[in-house]
């Protein structure tokens, strides 16, 4: 019975994994732990999908804003970042991860013509990462980012809701770098 339940959940997520963070004017709130090299932060991350953008605001639990980014068309613009966080390496890494998180190929159908063949046999589909050489491999609730046939980053969505559009837990793990980002659903999703 338990195995059936797991299978059911994965099956649901497989159909809708590309639509995470894609409901317009919806705010997704997550309690978030960021471990990026020597930078360690915890707080609340608000992700809002606008018409063509994602706005991401990360604040400490007690409310002070640490950064505020706008993501649009594969670019991440800084609206605000706390001085102490302005390390260029940190900013580049966190922006790339957030971009990959919210722009995980918003419309599956848009990318089917970009499918590339790799050695991975069980993938649902594969695609170019918008012109870069990296291959993105999506299977069930996991998105692997592959470079030279090695998985260098994994974004895993754990437990999605009934409609498969909100993940309860999301982990971003780098295999070759000391970077780990954990998001846990904080609050009911807010529809604006």
């Amino acid at each position: 019975m338990f195995l059936f339940f797991i299978a059911f959940q994965v099956s649901k997520a497989q159909d809708s994994i590309v639509s995470f963070f894609n409901e317009r004017d919806t705010v997704y709130l997550y309690h978030t732990l960021l471990d990026v090299y020597t930078f360690h932060f915890s707080g609340v991350m608000a992700i809002k999908k606008l018409e063509t953008q994602h706005r991401i605001i990360f604040s400490t639990e007690t409310g002070a804003t640490l950064f505020d980014f706008t993501i649009e068309k594969n670019k991440c613009k800084t609206n605000y970042i706390m001085k102490e966080m302005e390390n260029p390496i940190f900013v580049k890494l966190i922006k790339t991860d957030l971009l990959d998180l919210v722009q995980s190929y918003l419309e599956k159908k848009n990318y089917t013509d970009k499918v590339k063949v790799s050695n991975y046999s069980n993938s649902n589909f594969r695609l170019d990462n918008n012109g870069n050489q990296n291959i993105v491999y999506i299977s069930g609730c996991t998105i692997d980012f592959i470079n030279n046939k090695n998985i260098y980053k994994t974004i895993s969505h754990i437990k999605s809701d009934e409609n498969g559009i909100v993940s309860y837990v999301i982990n971003i793990i780098h295999n070759n770098l000391p970077i780990k980002i954990e998001l846990s659903k904080f609050y009911n999703t807010i529809e604006e």
């Binding site: 309690h31 732990l33 915890s42 640490l66 846990s184």
Partner: peptide
């Protein structure tokens, strides 16, 4: 030290290595 406990685990960090957190905490 900063310790954070959620439903899964306890995470611990050195506050001096996290100037942003330290500054906000001192102010609060």
């Amino acid at each position: 030290k900063i310790q954070i406990k959620d439903e899964k685990k306890v995470s611990e960090y050195d506050m001096n290595a996290n100037k942003a957190f330290k500054q906000i905490n001192d102010m609060m």
